[in-house]
Design a protein around this nucleic acid. Sequence first.
DNA 1: GCCAACGTTGGC
DNA 2: GCCAACGTTGGC
Length: 158
Amino acid sequence: MVRYWLVKSEPGTFSFQDLLDAPKQRTRWEGIRNYTARNFMRDGMSVGDGVLFYHSSAEPTGVAGTARVCAAAVADPTQFDKRSDGYDPKSKREAPTWLAVELEAVRALKNFVPLERLKAEPALADMLVVQRGQRLSIQPVTEREWRTVLALGGLPVR
DNA sequence: GCCAACGTTGGC
DNA sequence: GCCAACGTTGGC
């Protein structure tokens, strides 16, 4: 069953263009340190799921492109790396606390869809990313929301 | 840079 | 197990 997701990234740290430029256009989605987001990766995300790549803390904020899950969640290596911001001294190698899926770029939206446009779209009124105070960095997206965002972005909906 | 909203931590 | 304090997120 294919599902849909939205992931947030600060483009100053890792933008959709960075994903397009990455080897094989893939990256491990490491550094997630929120239990709800981790649980989505562990229990929800499957290879092939569609992903909206959202730029947060940016000018403008909004959806820049689409990606897909290309590998299921494994232990996030940065939790064991003392030099990493994501280092977690409480996490044990035999029972890792934090996980990371792998994402692969699919394509940039033809038109970047700003948050303002998402908020203005009645079909997206219930979408998590437009809700006030919603800061989850990995969010489930309904098929209808997925189709609507792709249409706003000028991509054909497969 | 501000600050509202939220998640996590830790004292009790 | 409660909840105040704290740190972080992220829009503006």
